[in-house]
């Protein structure tokens, strides 16, 4: 398990020191110059081949995805747009290992997801994927810090180590002063930033975001998107975001459109 790059990034930011260890290698270099809006030339971190996904509703079979191919280079920030029912969320779920294609191969972060059991997928998710949901999905009975700490409970880290990481993640999202607040004591924007801290605390390779700004006002949405950009550029996270919001899509380096189960 690769850990520590968030701290490393933090350190770089704080002390303005260069050359911190980074696992995102080539992509990092390319983005280092600030242009960043590249068809990042790094190796693919997501490779989907001939993906189909159909659902059974009663007797009817609904074909949501049909023979879809997709490559996402490591370190890119991609936005996926498309009308409701186009299969955006299904595609996102397949990348995140929450759903499995009916046919086709999904290789994400070096693992072939199609061949993994539910248990293996859960473990894989905890190490490789950070989630950002539209409705934040914080656990209401836990404080901000405890919410962020939740995924770390699946690791063998010591309590002190976990605390350190939680503090770092919350500092990255700018909420170090809200650690002991409960979700209901936070604004929508703050809740989503806590959710982002939860998504990065495990130092995943990929962050998937499903309409991360859907429940937010413009100002909070901008803050969240800026934060995501920073995660992409400074911490070299690959981000795959489903959104309806053109302004949000604008911030990504690659925009894709999905319509009727196929990428345009």
């Amino acid at each position: 398990m690769t850990t520590g790059s968030i701290e490393a990034g933090e350190a770089k930011e704080a002390k303005s020191e260069g050359g911190a260890a980074s696992k995102a290698g080539a992509a990092a270099k390319e983005k280092g110059d600030g242009k960043g809006k590249a068809d990042a030339g790094g190796p693919s971190i997501v490779t989907l081949r001939k993906i189909s996904r159909s659902f059974q509703r009663g007797r009817e079979t609904i074909q949501v995805l049909d023979g879809l191919d997709l490559e996402v280079p490591a370190g890119s920030f991609e936005a996926l747009m498309g009308p409701s029912g186009s299969g955006k969320s299904t595609l996102l779920n397949i990348i995140a290992g929450l759903d499995r294609p009916t046919t086709g191969d999904a290789e994400v972060a070096g693992s072939n997801l199609s061949r993994m059991s539910d248990g293996e997928l859960a473990k894989w998710r905890s190490q490789n994927i950070g989630f950002i949901f539209q409705s934040f999905n914080l656990i209401p009975v836990l404080t901000a810090a405890q919410n962020v700490e939740l995924p770390l409970l699946l690791t063998h880290l010591s309590s002190d180590e976990r605390k350190k990481r939680v503090a770092t993640a919350l500092r990255v999202v700018g909420l170090e002063d809200r650690m002991e607040h409960y979700p209901r004591q936070l604004s929508g924007g703050q809740e989503q930033r806590v959710a982002i801290a939860r998504a990065i605390v495990n130092d995943p390779k990929i962050i998937v975001a499903d309409e991360p700004t859907g429940d937010l006002d413009r100002k909070s949405a901008d803050d969240v998107l800026t934060l995501m950009e920073r995660l992409n550029k400074e911490f070299h996270k690959t981000i795959f975001m489903v959104t309806h919001d053109p302004a949000a899509a604008e911030r990504a380096s690659v925009q894709r459109r999905l319509d009727k189960g196929a990428l345009q």
Binding site: G119, A122, S126, F131, F133, L154, N202
Partner: peptide, 15 residues
């Protein structure tokens, strides 16, 4: 139920 979905997404297993 929804919350269990979130936990599962974050990496907790069915177990």
């Amino acid at each position: 139920t929804h919350e269990y979905g979130v936990l599962r997404a974050v990496g907790f297993s069915a177990g």
